[in-house]
Design a protein around this nucleic acid. Structure first.
Lengths: 130, 130
DNA sequence: ATCGGTGCAAAGGGTTTGCAGGGTA
DNA sequence: TACCCTGCAAACCCTTTGCACCGAT
């Protein structure tokens, strides 16, 4: 049975607040403001626990693992090549039929759009926080 | 200027022979038959060099980095969740317009289909362990 | 008082890099 | 011969794990 701790609350809050796929490092950075002692290992363990209970789903884009709230309709993602942030896009527009040829069993699919996000485009900063 | 070595030949041959995105570990395993002394570091360096000269392109799916020949028409990929192999699918069928909302600059996109490949489906071999 | 959660540090995979020696041009 | 390429090992980054302590129930 899971217990409620301040750390878990802080980690869960990140996902609600950002509403986009986050890496463990991003979560760790966000929680550092309120709970500087919260270790990166706790972030990983908690995130994995949240995935197991179905609260988060893994989003594999951009090399590092990301996670987002599972309570969202099917959608795809945008990856900003400047700031390495992932964003959620609107609902899925990919036609489900014939995604793969005969012989392949299709379980799922993911569409990732690469480019530059509005924040990076307007400020032409790069890998900066906010 | 690049030099032709047996190692580089062997590495390039893997991509021609397999015609699908390969990880460094996969390339290393293939070359091991002919050139057991070829180190994994050489695979990484060579693959990165091939990307720089435009011969290979990175394919970021499934957690580990993969690479494929760039001399192929636009297409997407299938990732087998059993054997961890990536395959190339037919040409792109995603409509290019409205991939992202206002404010986002779109450079590229990638559609990944997850499932089980014919080889794993028929023989039920694969990674086992489930 | 339990027993899951946390912090720290060390361990584990994947990838890169430093260095000395080897092979191509 | 010159210089790139290679092998090996150490370094790095991301993620997981061991262990002792903390704290929610």
């Amino acid at each position: 049975m899971q217990r409620n701790t301040k750390q878990r609350e802080a980690i869960a809050a990140c996902f609600s607040a950002e509403n986009r796929p986050l890496t463990a490092a991003e979560v760790h950075a966000f929680t550092a403001k309120d709970r500087p002692s919260l270790g990166i290992a706790t972030v990983y363990r908690t995130v994995n626990a949240f995935v197991e209970i179905g609260m988060l789903v893994p989003v594999l884009i951009g090399g590092t693992n990301r996670y987002e709230l599972s309570a969202k309709p099917r959608h795809h993602h945008f990856y900003c090549q400047k700031c390495d942030r992932a964003y959620c896009l609107k609902e899925c527009t990919v036609s489900k039929d014939r995604l793969a040829p005969e012989g392949f069993t299709v379980h799922d699919h993911e569409l990732v759009v690469y480019g530059v996000c509005p924040s990076c485009r307007s400020t032409s900063n790069g890998k900066e926080g906010e």
